[in-house]
Design a protein around this nucleic acid. Structure first.
Ligand SMILES: O=c1ccn([C@H]2C[C@H](O)[C@@H](COP(=O)(O)OP(=O)(O)OP(=O)(O)O)O2)c(=O)[nH]1
Ligand SMILES: [Mg+2]
Length: 770
DNA sequence: TTGCAGGTTCT
DNA sequence: AGAACC
DNA sequence: GCAA
């Protein structure tokens, strides 16, 4: 192994935000960029479609990710988060000024939150230099790339620990600093909004992000007005913030005839964050922040087009205008590592709050990795695991950890190839954990809910591993029968380490998580979440679109370059983002089954995926087609034939695997039961008989279970894939076979695989780990 | 410090 | 080769 | 982020 050199410049990575803000920055020397990207800025009414799109699905969940599969809790909170509509229900607050907390209509969820970052550091243009006092710390965001253009990026310093003030519902006027006499708030931030008052459209805190923004405005000195012109009162609104997805017209109707003060400046919701970044109130860039009355229909529409002018980038736009560092080489295998500098500064600073990893535009430039490590490491691991298995034969279970669970507890009988039995070693795998209870009555429901939000956030981050760690931790927590209250208790649970344990304790004690507040504050959070719901759009693509200035689905339709999948994904954003009732899944399956029957009576099929695991609703329809004797080649032809028939019947609406190469055995498309019904994602897999057992295992999932049991196989020196369980099989990073190896288990029996691996059999419905 | 599943398809 | 997805 |  070649250890040390592998630590290249992780700091090369640039925080997404940071780069974005740079792009946008109106700062001195950025002119050219501005031109280049010409950010469109949403705000106006062109976001219509995005609105519907956004509201249709989960408000804040990240689509695709197979994380939580819908729990009542999820729905609940989405509902809350979703409320948007410009209904004019500005609560009848009595006082003329409000606080985000008090105004919150639905705050039982989280009582208060104050976000504070950038504490003492004078935000205003920190000297470009990055106090490099210490070598190691890459200082969260800025640092590394800071050199380029000035570092005006947000530089969240260690957030000050905030006194956990309950601020119970009350109005808590303490939050409303008296303008004149206060220079800094308790967090010692400059009160940049001192003396201004603002009104929000809509003027409530139903939306969590909006609430956050309002709270920030207040923290920095602004006064939240109850009405536009507090008649006879002192407050005269100086700024009107129009929240995302609200157009000028919506604002007018929201105001119901009330007049906009002449002096008021109407800006979009991003403006406040922009000022905070700069550390002072800056002149709003018209195109970016000002919301104005559309001249004429035509005009308003044509305004936007400038967006992606014929400019450069249509295709490979290198994303940031600032050609960031770009990835040097990054040769091999791990396409993208990611996890990044975990802690470094994070924990170094204030333990409680983490560092805000913001979104990064580029992947970390991983540098070369020791290629050879893999083998060595692997063999080491195998050796080690063997040793452990032997040695620990009699150790009792106690701590189980890792992954897959083979169900067995301490003594299992299953015989192994080598005559070994299941021991502690295997128990470490998740598989072993029993099925989890339903989220409903779980004593840790609230904790889980919060951690899931954080998980969602980390997924937007691009970190490859942290989200997995969170999923495992959450899964472990779900399996607990008792409420976990302290970090000490939490840490005992396998899959939960110090960091998450601390968060659990914080959640239990304060019912909130500072890290989360911080995360939600990210201005691109929502846009990123929205784009990621599009089938065919992943994190990288979403970042590119955002860096190009796109903010709504409409922007994408009008100006972005879309792949075939993405186009379909956008057209059916709502459909694909909606889970399918079990009954409907079955109907789709029956359609396929009947067609298969016409083709060859020996063909059979099974509905796999979450359906087979017994879920009440599924994200898609997974179908496996088998034949007792057909060869792969024949199956391929069967698939072509099947698709043609399905297409003709009008059932199959799209084939996103169209250029299926010869020999293709899979199909990914969309089907529709009857006209008018939603399109559903349909996945078909043709499986030759000798692969059926492994395919059953694979296609039943869930994915975490698969990874777990595969890791176990690996630790036993075997390889498990959808075609079988192998010994001596080697593949390259690209999964091209290097050494065939021999298939140790083949055939239609999935149980044989469990047996060979020494994993206790688990029914499909017990294979859920997320 | 290091690994974290293994594969397919499209661009 | 990278990205998205199973 | 967790665990070895
Ligand atoms: O990264 C992955 C994704 C999926 N699978 C397997 C397990 C999964 O059960 C099956 C089908 O994938 P799908 O994405 O349809 O997941 P699901 O389990 O069926 O859940 P959903 O209800 O979201 O469709 O493919 C993996 O092995 N690895
Ligand atoms: Mg599925």
């Amino acid at each position: 192994m070649s250890p040390q050199y592998s630590m290249p410049s992780k700091e090369e990575k640039i925080q997404f935000f940071q780069s974005l803000s740079k792009v946008y920055s109106q700062d001195d020397d950025d002119e050219e960029l501005d031109l280049d990207l010409d950010l469109p800025v949403p705000t106006n009414g062109l976001s219509t479609s995005s609105e519907s799109a956004a509201s249709s699905g989960a408000g804040s969940t990240v689509g695709k990710k197979r994380l939580h599969e819908e729990s009542p809790a999820d729905l609940e909170q989405r509902k809350v988060a979703k409320v948007e509509k410009p209904k004019k229900t500005a609560g009848p607050t009595t006082s003329s000024t409000r606080t985000a907390q008090s105004g919150s209509n639905n705050d039982e969820t989280d009582s208060d939150d104050d976000v504070v970052f950038m504490k003492s550091k004078p935000v205003s243009r920190p000297a470009p230099k990055e106090t490099k006092s210490d070598s190691k710390v890459p200082s969260s965001l800025v640092s590394s790339s800071s050199t380029r253009s000035r570092g005006n990026a947000k530089r969240p310093d260690a957030p000050e620990r905030r006194s956990t003030m309950p601020a119970t519902g009350l109005v808590d006027t303490t939050n409303i600093p008296r303008a004149t006499e206060i220079r800094h708030n308790k967090k010692r931030e400059r009160m940049i909004f001192d003396g201004i008052s603002f009104y929000y459209i809509p003027n409530d805190t139903k939306n969590p992000v909006r609430r956050k923004r309002i709270a920030r405005l207040q923290e920095l000195g602004a006064v939240w007005a109850d009405d536009l012109n507090e008649r006879g009162k002192t407050t005269i609104v100086s700024y009107i913030f129009v929240d995302k997805k609200h157009s000028w017209d919506m604002m007018i109707s929201y105001l119901k005839g009330r007049k906009i003060p002449d002096a008021a400046i109407v800006v979009n919701e991003e403006y406040s964050g922009h000022c905070i970044e700069f550390g002072r109130i800056v002149q709003p860039i018209p195109k970016r922040f000002l919301v104005s009355k559309p001249q004429t229909e035509a005009d308003s529409l044509s305004n936007i087009p400038s967006l992606v002018p014929a400019k450069s980038n249509p295709t490979d736009h290198n994303v940031s205008p600032y050609s960031l560092k770009i990835k040097p080489k990054k040769p091999k295998q791990p396409p993208q590592p990611e996890s990044q500098i975990p802690d470094a500064d994070e924990q170094a600073e204030t333990p409680p709050d983490d560092p805000p990893p913001k979104f990064e535009i580029f992947k970390p430039v991983e540098v070369s990795k020791p290629v050879d490590t893999k083998k060595d490491a692997l063999s080491d691991m195998i050796v080690k695991s063997k040793r452990i298995a032997d040695a620990s034969m009699f150790i009792e279970p106690e701590s189980d950890e890792e992954e897959v669970s083979k169900g067995e507890p301490a003594f299992s009988k299953t015989s192994m190839p080598g005559g070994s039995k299941i021991f502690k070693f295997e128990q470490h795998f998740l598989c072993n954990k029993g099925p989890q209870k339903q989220s409903k009555d779980c004593p840790n429901a609230r904790t889980i809910e919060m951690l899931e939000k954080l998980l969602e956030y980390y997924e937007l981050t691009g970190d490859q591993w942290r989200p997995i760690a969170y999923r495992k931790a959450i899964a472990a927590l779900k399996r607990q029968k008792e409420k976990v209250c302290t970090s000490k208790e939490a840490k005992k649970i396998s899959g939960i380490g110090q960091r998450i344990a601390d968060k659990i304790e914080e959640i239990v004690e304060t019912n909130e998580l500072r890290r989360l507040d911080y995360a939600m504050d990210d201005p691109n959070y929502e846009t990123l979440s929205l784009f990621l719901k599009i089938y065919g759009c992943g994190l990288q693509q979403a970042k590119v679109w955002i860096s190009q200035g796109h903010r709504t689905i409409d922007d994408l339709l009008k100006h972005a370059k879309l792949s075939k999948h993405q186009r379909i994904g956008i057209e059916h954003l709502d459909d694909f983002d909606t889970r399918i009732p079990r009954e409907e899944v079955k109907e789709h399956g029956e359609v396929v089954r009947s067609v298969l029957r016409e083709m060859d009576s020996d063909l059979s099929m099974e509905i796999m995926g979450s359906y087979r695991r017994g879920k009440a609703d599924c994200g898609d329809i997974d179908i496996m087609v088998t034949h007792p004797t057909a060869t792969a080649n024949e199956l391929h032809k069967v698939l072509e034939d099947l698709l043609e028939r399905l297409f003709e019947s009008g059932f199959l609406k799209a084939d996103m695997t169209s250029s299926r190469r010869m020999g293709g055995m899979t199909m990914h498309g969309a089907s529709q039961l009857r006209p008018g019904m939603p399109w559903r994602r349909l996945d078909i897999l043709m499986v030759p008989n000798e692969c059926v057992g492994a395919a059953l295992l694979y296609f039943t999932g869930d994915d975490i279970f698969n990874r777990s049991i595969r890791l176990l196989a690996r630790k036993k020196g075997l390889k498990l894939n959808q075609n079988g369980l192998w010994k001596g099989r080697q593949t390259d990073a690209n999964s091209k076979v290097i050494t065939e190896g021999t298939r140790v288990v083949s055939g239609p029996d999935e149980k044989a695989i469990f047996d060979y691996l020494g994993v206790e059999w688990r029914e499909p419905h017990e294979r859920i780990y997320h």
